[in-house]
Every structure is written in C-alpha cells, then in structure tokens.
C-alpha cells in the first residue's frame, strides 16, 4: 500500500471513534437539561398515571444505558426515530430542513472564500494602505456580533430600501430567484465575520511563507515576484487556509442556528432550538448528530485535501 493510500485509510477510520463519542455526548447532554418531555407534551394537568403510561410507551422509563443502546441500534438501521410532539419520522423532517441549512452555510462559506482569500493575498503583498484598509475590515468583521449585523441588514435592505424580504423561505426548486432573494441577507450576515477571518488567516499564512528562506532562493533563480506569489507562496499557504476553512465550517453551522432563527429559515438549526424548548429528545439528538456528522465529514475532507496539497502531511513527515 502506498503511503498516500495508508494516510487516507487511517484518516477515514479515525472518524468512527469520533462519531461514537459524539453520539454519547449528544445523548447525555440533552438529558442533563432540567425538564421532562412528557410533562411538556401533556401539560401540567396530566395525571401521574397518564405521565407514567406515556413514559413507558416512549421507553423513557428504561435505564439510560438501555435507552442509549436502543437509540444507537435504530441509528445503525438507518432509523433516526420519531419526533415526540408530531410523531413524524425524523428522517423526513431532516430531509426537508437539511437542504436549507446546507444552502445557507455553503453560500456563506463560498462568498467568504471568494472575497476573503483574494483580499488576504493582496493584503500580504500590498502596500501600507491596503494593509490599513484590510486591518480595519478584519477588526470590524470579527467583532460585530452576527445577530446585531442581521438586524441592521434587515432594517436597511428590508425596512428602508425595501429591496429584499426581511424573512421567510422558498425552496430553490420551487423558485430559484425568490429563494436567492430570501437567502441574501442571512448569507451576508453569516459571511461577514467569516470573510474577515479568512482574510486574516490568508494574509498571515502568505506573510509567513514569503519570509521563508526558499523565497530568497526563488528570487536568486530569477523568478518574477508574481510567479513567486502565484506559483509558490499560494501553494504553500493553501494547506493552512484549507485547514482553517474546515474548522470554520463548524463555526458557520453554529452561527446558522442564530441566523435561521433571526430570518425564520426552516433549517436544522431552528428545528433544534424549538426541540430543545420542548425537551423533544429524539429531535434534538437527531438534529445535533446530523450537524456534528457533517462537521466530521468536512474535517475528513479537509484533512484529505491538505494531505493532497502537502506531500509532507500524507507522508507523515510533519510539515
């Protein structure tokens, strides 16, 4: 087996224990939250006998370990369980809501990469004014909280200018143009801090690469500054930037919860928030697990891409 194939296999196998530990955490943490799903469902006038009966039917009277084994067993059969309130299968709910969250985060990350990375490169090689302008943007972008930014964007574009809808959602398949109009403000809200962060990361990575000794050697070979930046510095900075993008996907998925709430987008984040308020254990578990699994998947892809970009990583030589 080549070292590269071994690297890929090792990295893929490593996701299994991570997923397992995550399932334990998800399962336990929602049960640590005070409150009882059955009492929430039945209302406070329900009799003790009723409550006990419903608890028994939902298997909530079993010991935790047994409940966990039942849940994971179902998961392994592809069954995410049922919503406690609506009794609908969670796989159906997720099939509707996951695309919303995916569209929101994908569009935000794409925008952040397309703007932040080129600006970061420019800032690394640019003059004093480029640096000052980008510094200002980075400080603002990172320190402004996204819920505040979202409200301001709504006030401006939906309130004063009335060019975009303040909230709501239509599936892309139903009406692509309307869908994108609904997505614009949430994406801007989520992407601003991300752009600033990627700009700073890219600039830092480029600057550190441009100070390495081999850059002098490249100059001694007679290469133009443009070739040194595009051909060598970018390639060497890319693994750092890609790693940060991978980590930031997790941050975006977290931010999506706030933004979906703010703009009434029917995504997974909103589903989780509602379910937490209802102590709707299976829904919270399924929602969080799916989001977490997506993050694990993105991390896996990130590491494989970094291994492909930097042969030292896949050789296990240490960068």
């Amino acid at each position: 087996m080549t070292s590269r194939a071994a690297f890929v296999l090792r990295r893929v196998l490593l996701t299994l224990p991570v997923l397992w530990v995550m399932s334990v955490f998800v399962f336990l943490i929602i049960r640590l939250v005070p409150g009882d799903p059955v009492r929430t469902m039945l209302g406070f006038r329900a009799t003790a006998a009723n409550v006990a009966e419903v608890r028994r039917r939902l298997h909530l009277d079993e010991p935790l370990l047994q409940q966990y084994v039942r849940w994971v067993g179902d998961l392994l059969h592809g069954d995410l369980g049922q919503d406690l309130v609506s009794r609908a299968p969670l796989s159906e709910q997720l099939a509707q809501r996951l695309p919303v969250t995916l569209e929101l985060t994908t569009l935000s990350m794409t925008l952040a990469v397309l703007v932040g990375v080129p600006l970061g490169v420019r800032a690394a090689v640019g003059g004093r004014w480029t640096r000052r302008l980008t510094d200002g943007f980075v400080v603002l972008g990172i320190s402004v909280p996204d819920f505040w930014l979202g409200i301001m964007l709504v006030l401006l574009f939906a309130g004063t200018l009335t060019v975009l809808p303040p909230s709501g959602y239509l599936p892309f398949t139903t009406d692509p143009v309307q869908n994108l109009r609904y997505m614009t403000l949430p994406v801007l809200t989520l992407a601003t801090a991300e752009t600033a962060y990627l700009l700073r990361t890219t600039r830092g990575a480029m600057e550190s690469v441009l100070q390495r000794p081999y850059v002098t050697y490249l100059r001694a070979k007679g290469l133009s500054p443009r070739r040194i930046v595009a051909g060598h510095a970018l390639k060497n900075a890319a693994p750092t930037v890609v790693t940060v993008i991978g980590i930031q996907v997790g941050v975006l998925l977290g931010g999506a919860i706030v933004v979906e709430q703010l703009f009434a987008l029917p995504g997974v984040g909103r589903m989780i928030v509602t379910a937490i308020n209802q102590r709707n254990y299976p829904t919270v578990q399924a929602g969080v697990l799916v989001i977490a699994a997506m993050f694990v998947l993105v991390s896996l892809v990130t590491d494989l891409v970094v291994g492909w970009l930097d042969p030292r990583v896949s050789d296990g030589a240490g960068a």
């Binding site: 000794p213 081999y214 050697y217 490249l218 390639k235 060497n236 970009l309 030292r312």
Partner: peptide
C-alpha cells in the same frame, strides 16, 4: 547561487 541549507532553500511542496 547555491545557498547554505538545502532543507530550507527548496520549496517543500
């Protein structure tokens, strides 16, 4: 020019 340390003078990628 040939520089001092070949481990840092070549582009690692």
């Amino acid at each position: 020019m040939v520089v001092q340390d070949p481990s840092t003078s070549l582009d690692p990628i």
